[in-house]
């Protein structure tokens, strides 16, 4: 079970969130959008230089910057 940062998830790959960053209204915003511990995330696309990336989580497509996605830890479901 390898854990990587969300920003390192490659397009087309799935993962499960194992840890969310603590504190701050921003992580709460992320959670209300569906980024919670145990949620399944798929990386859809990344822009040039990997920043931002688009993820499919629960039933929404959301774009996140690298600096914000690196704090979220995911365990990869398929290599």
């Amino acid at each position: 079970m390898n854990t990587i940062a969300l920003c390192d998830l490659k397009p087309g790959h799935h993962g499960t969130i194992c840890a969310m960053p603590n504190g701050g209204s921003f992580s709460r915003r992320l959670e209300s959008l569906g980024f919670t511990k145990g949620a399944c995330v798929t990386c859809l696309q990344t822009a040039k230089s990997g920043d931002p990336s688009a993820f499919w989580v629960r039933d929404t497509a959301v774009a996140l910057r690298k600096c914000d996605a690196k704090d979220i830890a995911v365990s990869v479901l398929n290599a």
Partner: peptide, 9 residues
């Protein structure tokens, strides 16, 4: 600031 953008269907 931190940025999250919803990509609507």
């Amino acid at each position: 600031s931190s940025f999250v953008l919803e990509l609507p269907p």
